[in-house]
Nucleic acid binder design. Structure first.
Length: 517
DNA sequence: TTTGTAATAT
DNA sequence: CATATTACAA
């Protein structure tokens, strides 16, 4: 099934022989692209009509490895084609167009485009496209394995941002229209739809979620709080009682653990933490800001302060550079090119823990702790948001809206979330969510071609779950214009390696030689 | 049976 | 760590 061996006899040159189908109504572009692609040693097929492209693809479902299609074409909308391809042959599709209108780009990504190129397209972009194919295969393997009944992997990560040159808006290989992989693990009610998140997700208590939680708690009354009640009030469909229970437990624990040593009297009472412990007014004052509007009593305010000061810290923007993931990676043996990708049969195991995107987020986790003088902005941001108000501030700018579901940010598996939302009230932010997810995860890592990049790509491929909730973006984008300038900085100041120097046969050789062994 | 919680696991 | 899972009692 996954077999789509390269017709090219040259098995040694890695990306060579990739069978690319180019679709564009503009013959000029077609020619240009063909030329460029051939220069990359790809096997090119051009096509001026989307319809033709489709039939070509249908004729030989395994005749191509990847499709590059223009967005606007007379006979068939590029997206339409994209959809079909995703649905029928599940090939990676790269969209392209002259304008970079975000809505359009998003649409492309939403519809399953694995990448979106802006014309004029440059060689370096084309040189990298093979990675999409590559990644895709990895996914497939993973999916299959997951179906074989192993446990889930946890995905958590913050996002990165657009690529510097703004030319390559790399997305994920998420075909919204992807073919359903039948089998399913009996449990796990959610996400019966997203192949990429086939595994059970771990709830990530985003600010938004936590807000709901807090809100619920306050609505109920600290004395009567109970997982069930909270859960109900939160009105987050996919959340389970356990989730809430767990969170509840931690919430108060954390509180006590607060180094500031808040009046945690030796209370024997279990629920003490939640109800007692009234922190000094000052504290409450400063950290409560964002929440008072949502509740009544002063008590509540104080309570919130508790939650805020201790817990939300981690959600601060300052966290964003802390990209971390932990997950399993399929070992890959590239010795013989794509045809050798580990297929559903193989079962080597490679554990990649906390693999920080090498070149890129190199400053990652540690930066939070250290003083990085060369990053005044960062420091400033950090001191402001972390030390004092923590992310709360961000939240402040974004008052809890009255609408509920709308902001469900469990970016984790948008589909499920969405599904449930709809079930509940027919509202859905699917698009935004989805798009954002893609932007977060997919973008940022140019599909370069170094070993490092590769790793990154895989991870990326795996990590659909971004911690950065929608709200984060909203905060920044819609509420506080100022910090905007800093975002790219905070988010992405990493991968600015230059892709240009990467393409030399040697590189591939390097890859070949057990980079992954 | 359902719910809340403590303990324990990942 | 933060969150999940388990076990058990109310």
């Amino acid at each position: 099934m996954v077999e789509s061996g390269f017709s090219s006899p040259r098995h040694d040159a890695f990306p060579a022989g990739l069978r690319v189908l180019v679709v564009d109504d503009d013959p000029t572009w077609l020619k240009i692209l063909e030329k460029m692609l051939k220069k990359c040693s790809y096997e090119v097929t051009t096509c001026g009509l989307a319809r033709d492209a489709l039939s070509l693809l249908r004729e030989r479902k395994d005749g191509y490895d990847i499709v590059i299609s223009d967005v606007n074409m007379p006979d068939m909308d590029g997206f339409k084609l994209l959809e079909h391809v995703g649905l029928e042959m599940d090939l990676p599709v790269i969209m392209m167009s002259v304008d970079g209108e975000t809505s359009r780009v998003m649409k492309g990504v939403q519809h399953g485009a694995c990448d979106y190129l802006l014309k004029p397209i440059r060689m370096k972009e084309l040189r990298n496209i093979w990675q999409h194919v590559f990644r895709k295969k990895i996914h497939e393997v993973r999916d299959i394995e997951s179906l074989e009944g192993n446990e889930g992997l946890q995905m958590t990560r913050s996002g990165s941002d657009l690529v510097d040159d703004g030319h390559l808006l790399s997305g994920e290989d998420m075909n919204s229209a992807r073919k359903r992989k039948d089998a399913e693990n009996k449990h796990d009610d959610r996400d019966l739809s997203d192949p990429s998140s086939t595994k059970k997700a771990r709830v990530v208590w985003t600010v938004d979620l936590h807000q709901k939680f807090v809100k619920a708690v306050n609505q109920i009354g600290f004395d009567k709080v109970g997982p069930k009640k909270i859960l109900d009030l939160m009105n987050v469909p996919w959340l389970t009682r356990e989730n809430v229970a767990s969170h509840l437990q931690n919430v108060d624990l954390n509180h006590e653990g607060d180094k500031k040593g808040i009046t945690s009297a030796p209370v024997a009472e279990p629920k003490g933490a939640l109800s007692i412990d009234i922190p000094d007014p000052h504290k409450a004052q400063s950290s409560q800001i964002s929440f008072d509007h949502s509740l009544g009593s002063v008590d509540s305010g104080l309570k919130f302060a508790l939650f805020n000061s201790t817990n939300q810290t981690r959600y601060s923007w300052s966290e964003i550079p802390e990209i971390q993931f932990k997950q399993e990676c399929e070992p890959l043996q590239l010795e013989n090119g794509f045809s050798q990708l580990p297929l559903p049969g193989s079962q080597h195991q490679v554990q990649t823990e906390y693999l920080q995107p090498a070149a890129s987020i190199s400053s990652g986790p540690s930066i939070t702790e250290k003083e990085v003088s060369s990053r005044p902005l960062y420091d400033e941001y950090r001191s402001n948001h972390v030390k004092h108000l923590s992310p709360t501030e961000a939240v402040d700018l974004f008052p809890v809206p009255s609408r509920n579901q709308t902001l469900n940010n469990q970016v984790f598996n948008p589909i499920s979330a969405t599904t449930s939302s709809m079930k509940n009230q027919g509202i859905s932010l699917n698009d935004l969510e989805f798009a954002q997810r893609n932007l977060n995860g997919g973008v940022g890592v140019p599909i370069a071609s170094l070993s490092e990049d590769l790793q990154f790509c895989w991870l990326q491929g795996e990590c659909y779950a971004m911690n950065i909730g929608l709200q984060d973006f909203e905060c920044i984008e819609y509420n506080d214009p100022a910090p905007i300038a800093e975002i790219p900085f905070l988010l992405y100041d990493a991968p600015r390696f230059d892709h240009e120097h990467l393409f030399d046969p040697t590189e591939y050789a390097a890859i070949d030689q057990g980079l992954f062994a």
